[in-house]
Amino acid sequence: MTKSSPVGAASAGADVVLRRPSRLVTWLRNALPVTVAFLVFVGLWQLGITIFKPQPFIVPGPLNVLQAFQEQGASLWESTLITLRATAVAFGLSAVLGAAVSFLLTSIPILYKAVFPLTVVFQSVPVIVFVPLLLTWFGIGMPSIIAVAVIISIFPIIANTAIGLRSTDASLKQLFQLYGANSWQSLFKLRLPAALPYFFAGLRIAAGASVIGVVVGEYMAGMASTKGGLGFLVVETASRLQMAQLAAAGLCAAILGISFFLLVGYVGNLFLKNWHESAREER
């Protein structure tokens, strides 16, 4: 998983000659630097607040944010759940639609040549351009929010899966040809499994992107709903200059995004652990 960063692998391997370090030790070695850096950052932030004493609505301090968590805990939790639900739906839709579109595109060469460049163009259009359109189609609320998130998260899935479906090893294709494999066998026993690591790479990017998409969607399209997700909370707290609460909502979104990313990565590794480089544990 994330612990197999090249830097971590090098430092873990260099000074241990005879004995492989235990999992805990390896994990600590990889997690310690980032934890220390985070604590130093928060400490400096609080130190700056204590020295310069700015107004909390200009720069909130870590303690203000902590206080916001304590006081607004219930509503933060509720908003996080709403955002989580929308994210799950958007991510699921992106995964299914993305896989289907990339399969269709790569199955028909002329379609791939014609349409794939257009998806890149489509992806380059800022998502806010679509929001007025989506609002007229779906109205204010959940469907528009999900649509925004799908638009943001579907392209990494399409692009990655399409590459995977197109890069089946030539010798393996010939092997299947030599043993007279029919097109179903070639698809299910060769092309689809070979594309799986690419599909999961796309899903991993889409996991983070779909959280961002939902928050952006809520920010722009969810204003009228009485109960809102984290994006809605951002709008609300910002308009009241409650910067500590704003930071707390942002932190919730970040934690949600990271957890989702890790979860998708973990599920991917379960599928790929025996065979793909990306899922190998560092040694």
Binding site: S171, L172, Q174, L175, P193, L196, L272, N274, W275, H276
Partner: peptide, 11 residues
């Protein structure tokens, strides 16, 4: 036919 590479299915 035996190829130059082992051409095994890694999964």
């Amino acid at each position: 036919f035996v190829f130059q590479e082992p051409t095994l299915l890694p999964w």
